[in-house]
Design a protein around this nucleic acid. Sequence first.
RNA 1: GGCGCCAUAGUAUAAUGGUCAGUACAAGGGGCUCUCAAUCCCUAGAUAGGAGUUCGAUUCUCCUUGGCGCUACCA
Length: 485
Amino acid sequence: MTEKIRVRIAPSPTGKLHIGNARTGLFNYLFARHYGGTFILRIDDTDTERSTPEAEKAIFDGLKWLGITWDEGPDIGGNYGPYKQTERFDTYKDALNRLLEDGHAYYCFCSPEEIEQKRTTAEKAHEIYRYDNTCRTIPLDEARKRIAAGERAVIRLRVPEGTEANFHDLIRGDIEVDSETFDDFVIAKPGGAPLYNFATVIDDHLMDITHILRGQDHLTNTSKQILIYRALGWDVPKFGHFSLILDTNRKKLSKRAGAVYIGDFQEQGYLPQTVANFIALIGWSPGENKEKMTMEEMVEAFSMDHVQKADAVFDPEKLKWLNGVYIREMPLENLVEAVKPHLRNAGFEVDNVDQEWLKKVVFLEQERMRLFSEASELFDFFFKEIPYDKSLLSSKKHSDDELARALEQTREQLEGISNWDKEELENLCRSLASQMGWQGGDLFMPLRIAVTGKKATPPLFETMEVLGKELSLKRIDKAIQSLKK
RNA sequence: GGCGCCAUAGUAUAAUGGUCAGUACAAGGGGCUCUCAAUCCCUAGAUAGGAGUUCGAUUCUCCUUGGCGCUACCA
């Protein structure tokens, strides 16, 4: 590619940053970086009813969190600004006027009610609704007079009969569209506020966008936009349409699927690099057996050749696995800091405790954690009293009485231990078990449950070491009591 | 309904006009081990169906079926 590449994402600030938008953004970013092009963020806020500043901020924050940076945008400016559509209305007005003067567009005075009625009538008759061109022949000066007199009118594009709007898609190849389906569609609301398809074309052209890479849900818009490019006499950019992300029921990813907004993943304790890495893998592969990649590696490897055509299901399980991979290789200090907010959230004291101790706690769980939000459950016995469940303690091999005696004996020996560290603990418990004629595990499991309240924990003696002598003995006592009841 | 897009194991994907269709997650089994995890080994599992082109198709063409998207004076 010799031309200077310019790509953009143009989200509308009507909600939080959706994972699909984030992926489209990421692909555009990777494409731009790979080819040394420019990546632009534009805010498509022509829908003033639904656009909010909060949503706009969520988009900025979400992209930044993922590590996606842009070269031009509403917050940092650039040579092709402004980068918000609401600030470009004059530009649209000019283009609209040109189209009107040239006869490529015309005013339409049909009311929404009339249109709606015609539409339903057509549907009832099992006919395809197309605008019936009622206002197509109204001369421009007459239309202007009527508007001046207070009538409301939208602006429609004049689409010649039999017009084709086929195009070549970078991902899908040649797309052929039945020209019968076009009608004179609306490009601006009364008052001249541009509609999405129109504003987008103007902006993409004026911002010198070379490749429009977006979701497959825009595939039908593309043909309409091509008609607008032609009416304006502009070159048509290249298009590529990514597949959609589906939930595990093969439906468009919705809130029911759990996390669908980038902020959700952040809250649940996913690492940004996990999420960026993983969403890149939905619908794209580096072409070799490689999955875990840094942003730099993805930039290096990215190519439209390996972008998938078929829709892809988002698999939350694999995301968790990947996050676990990243967590395991995190420096302990970072992990401690990452986990703290989640522990605080669960009501655990993490600030006024020995930080070295906290590090040990986190270290014990590092390879067991897939999500930061799992921390509170994994760690609870380090921070709060545990419930004693006799049935959990009981085993098939030994009676409760035997168990209680064994624990009493163990407790006694533990009491006199000189160095409360994992080696000592293990040596002592092992010899105790063999004295009793027990398998190590037969003693370790009740001990584990006594000190942690859980069957699955980090290695017992390391855990006891971190728990400390006092607390460990206290818990063993309680366990003995509950066994005797 | 109309228009469009898509189709490799449960999921994400790799590959070639011609070896046992490869990898990862998930699943099952095993090793290690005080449990869990991590890790290692093993197993099962896919080219939607039907025609055609071809010496040969999972790959190219067509049809069927299925899935999805769009069908606004939203974006």
